[in-house]
Structures are given as structure tokens and as C-alpha cells.
């Protein structure tokens, strides 16, 4: 009987996502090299995950020789980590990320990794990706957007012994946009909740967010179907309306009267505010009509009153087109 060595995976980041991915892969029998900016956080995750997880001293150590690289860091730190990885990466390696935001200039996470490394076989994890499901042994559902089939094959191999249900799509940009703009829509829904609007209005804003993501997607070459699939609607239905996620919380706080600058300073690592600002800039440049994104940007960055900004969005003709 022959035994095959399990593939080695580099997990970069030991936050909620990095921790969950590490635990999941370790349970599936993969060898994981875990790196985190704070070594003690990595050690803690490794200890909890158990066998098969080693803590790497540097990004390069984690990535060298790994079959797959999982970038589990917020978008604001992605470039630095990718640059360090780029010192040792090779063209046959696969990279995944789960960032839900953009960099200044509306640079998508895959574009950041692409510009700092030789990696081309890139995938974005999107859709519900509800980590609590994984923690409770329930199926973890995610969309995997990638242009190369190699990425899907690698994900299939790694998750063969798990309850991960990865839905592949070649629309990498579409999956990234769904994730990024859903955070903006979450802020809008939080604002609505904060100013006392009901669930119908909150739901309307979330759907509007999806439609605007689709518009941006069309301008960037994404497919409309992605926004109606697991990465878009599939993310919206299971949890967004009643979400307690941090972008929603930020919106709620501002809706309830906290100054936007103060609230954003308290939630500095959130990806939604920067995404709103950059999406608005891009939309203006491309002549797109993005009233929801514009309203969130106005509230967060230009001092607009939440109630008035939302009222303007909700009373517009919101005919949606995907």
C-alpha cells in the first residue's frame, strides 16, 4: 500500500478566517505552515488546530515549497504580505484569498497579489463562507472565483475530506466585487437600522447594493450571472438581513448618531469604508449611476446626514438591472 504525502499549505494570517482555515485543513490532513504578524496568535491557532500545523517565522518560510497559499489578511495589509511572499513564490503555486475590499484606486485583491508576485493561479473565496458553520461541523459553503482550473482542482484535493462545498466559477472579478460591495451594502443597511428604518428598507438597500456591484462588474468585465449566484444572492439570503457583522455595526453606530470619522477610527481595519470611497470614484470616472454607493460615501467621508442620504436612495427609481 502506498501513502501520498499530503500537500503543504501556507496560511498567511491567524485571525478569524486564518484560524478557521487552519483548523479545517489540519482536520483534513493537510500540512499547514501558519504565519501571522503576531507570532503568539499563530502559536495559539496552531495549538488549537493540533497535528500538522507548524508556525513559520516569516512569510517566505511559510510559502517556500507550499502547494497552496491562503492569504487570510485584511486587504490593507495584503500588499505587504504578498510582496514578502513574492520573494519565494513559483509559477506552479496556487493562491487563494478571502479579502472583501479594495485598495485605493479600486485595486482588487487578486490584482494586488498579481502585481507583487509571479502567482497567476489565483482564486477568491466568496459567498456565504460562514465560519460558524465550519466550527459547528456544518457544511461550509463558498464560491471560488478563479480563471485557472488548477485552482479548482487544488481546492477539491484539499477539501476532499471536509464538509466544504466550494462552488467554482471562472469569474474571479465578479466574486471579488460581490464580496467588496456587499460590505458597502452592509454599511447602508446598518445606517438604515440606525436611523430607524425597517427591514424592508434594509433589504431593499442590500439588493440595491448587489445591483450596483453588478454594474461595476459589467464595467470591469465580470459576468452578471455571478451576482445572481452563490457569490452574490447566495451570500445575501442566508445572513445579510439579520447580520451582526462589523460593517453592519459601523453603519448602525453612525445611523444612531455617532460621528462617521469617530466610528471609522474605532473600526479601522474594516474594508467597507475604503471600498465605498473607491467604488464611488471609479463609478464617477466611468459614468456609472451608483446611488447607494454614493450615499454611503457621502455619509462616511463627506459629512452627509444618514437619514437624508438613505431617503434619496430609497426614493429614486430603483429599477434594478443585472
Amino acid at each position: 500500500m502506498t501513502t501520498t504525502t499530503p500537500p503543504r499549505v501556507a496560511v498567511l494570517g491567524a485571525g478569524k478566517l486564518g484560524g478557521a482555515v487552519t483548523a479545517l485543513l489540519a482536520r483534513a490532513g493537510a500540512r499547514v505552515s501558519l504565519w501571522a504578524r503576531r507570532p503568539e496568535a499563530a502559536k495559539q491557532v496552531a495549538k488549537e488546530a493540533g497535528k500538522g500545523v507548524e508556525v513559520a517565522a516569516s512569510v517566505a518560510d511559510a510559502c517556500r515549497g507550499a502547494r497552496l497559499l491562503c492569504f487570510a489578511v485584511p486587504v490593507e495589509g495584503l500588499r505587504e504580505v504578498a510582496r514578502a511572499a513574492g520573494e519565494v513564490t513559483t509559477g506552479d503555486q496556487i493562491a487563494l484569498h478571502a479579502c472583501r475590499g479594495v485598495e485605493t484606486g479600486f485595486v482588487l485583491p487578486s490584482e494586488i497579489i498579481r502585481s507583487e508576485t509571479c502567482l497567476k493561479k489565483l482564486g477568491a473565496l466568496g459567498g456565504p463562507l460562514y465560519l460558524d458553520d465550519a466550527a459547528h461541523g456544518r457544511p461550509l459553503v463558498a464560491a471560488v472565483g478563479a480563471r485557472f482550473d488548477d485552482v479548482f482542482r487544488a481546492v477539491r484535493v484539499l477539501t476532499a475530506n471536509t464538509r466544504v462545498r466550494a462552488h467554482p466559477t471562472h469569474d474571479l472579478i465578479g466574486v471579488e466585487l460581490c464580496g467588496a460591495i456587499s460590505n458597502v451594502a452592509q454599511i447602508a443597511a446598518g445606517l438604515a437600522e440606525g436611523v430607524g428604518l425597517g427591514e424592508t428598507d434594509q433589504g431593499t438597500l442590500l439588493v440595491r447594493g448587489l445591483a450596483e456591484a453588478a454594474q461595476l462588474g459589467a464595467a470591469r468585465g465580470a459576468e452578471a450571472a455571478t451576482f445572481l449566484g452563490i457569490a452574490g444572492v447566495g451570500d445575501l439570503i442566508p445572513r445579510q438581513v439579520t447580520s451582526t457583522r462589523r460593517n453592519r455595526h459601523l453603519g448602525r453606530e453612525i445611523g444612531q448618531g455617532m460621528a462617521a470619522a469617530h466610528a471609522m477610527a474605532a473600526h479601522a481595519a474594516l474594508e467597507g469604508p475604503v471600498t465605498a470611497r473607491e467604488a464611488r470614484t471609479l463609478g464617477d470616472r466611468m459614468g456609472l449611476k451608483l446611488p447607494l454607493i454614493q450615499a454611503v460615501d457621502d455619509v462616511l467621508w463627506r459629512g452627509a446626514a444618514p437619514a437624508e442620504a438613505l431617503e434619496r436612495v430609497l426614493t429614486l427609481d430603483l429599477s434594478l438591472s443585472f
Partner: peptide, 22 residues
Amino acid sequence: DPCGRRIDATRELWVDGKPAVD
């Protein structure tokens, strides 16, 4: 690579550790 570092481009053509058409 995009940062100007030398790379072994043949590895982009690897399948299971060796060059293969895909």
C-alpha cells in the same frame, strides 16, 4: 515577475511537478 525579479517561467507549465500541456 511584475516586480522585476527573475523567475522560472517553466513552472507555470507544470502539472504535478513536470511540464504538461493543459
